[in-house]
Simulated assay, not measured.
Amino acid sequence: MIREMIVVEGKDDTTAIQRAVDADTIETGGSAINKEVIQRIKLAQERRGVIIFTDPDHAGERIRKIISSKVKGCKHAFLTREEASYKDDIGVENASIKAIKTALENVKTEFTDIEEQISWQDLIDAGLIIHSQAAKRREELGKILGIGYCNGKQFYKRCKMFQITKQEFANGLRQIKLKD
């Protein structure tokens, strides 16, 4: 059994998680998260810990940001868009059991009080922002680092939040270059 409570968007996500692992979930009911849900997540964080496991889309990212801003020290599980896609639908409920287990095995812990490791200039120098292939590079590096896909500003925040070291960053960049 997974000790932490897993925060998901809806009932179908809960079903998918429970097919893959033995875990308890809290459903946000979508992106309109009310105060009661936030209170339940805060209580869960205090007692058992929380893993935020939302869809790899705009709405899922919005939910992740809302929860992270109100509940400190959350852990995060990420799926790629490919892992969470079925036809035109993107969601945790579409992921395979293997993809869900892998995402939960590679959970990242959020740290907010640690001095930044990666600089904005590092992202520019790596072509992760202000570059014609920036989005593609961020997607690839996000997979390698296990922090998911996001825009440049959010990528920078995640590198800080998950304490991605300059060494991890450099190793990830080398792997991308090997694929090119």
Rank of each mutant, 00 (worst) to 15 (best):
C74Q: 13
A77T: 07
D89H: 14
I129G: 00
L178H: 10
D12T: 14
M5V: 12
K11S: 06
V107S: 09
A23P: 05
I90Y: 02
K143H: 11
M5S: 03
I38N: 07
I129Q: 03
A103Y: 04
E116S: 05
S31P: 05
A84S: 01
K72H: 10
R47M: 14
G29M: 03
W120K: 15
E9L: 01
T25G: 02
I67P: 00
G142S: 06
K153W: 08
D180M: 12
R62K: 15
K101I: 08
E4A: 09
I38R: 12
A44W: 00
L123T: 08
G29F: 05
A32T: 08
F169C: 07
G49E: 11
L128Y: 05
D22L: 07
D89L: 10
P56Q: 13
A99R: 13
E110W: 01
K35C: 03
E93L: 10
T102E: 15
F78N: 10
I6G: 04
R138Y: 07
M161D: 14
G91N: 03
E4F: 03
G73K: 00
H131E: 04
K153A: 12
Y156K: 11
T54W: 01
N106I: 01
F162M: 11
T112S: 14
C159S: 09
I52Y: 02
G146E: 11
D55H: 12
T112H: 07
I144M: 02
I129S: 02
R138P: 12
G142K: 07
I124K: 15
E83A: 12
Q133C: 10
N94G: 04
K157N: 14
M5Y: 11
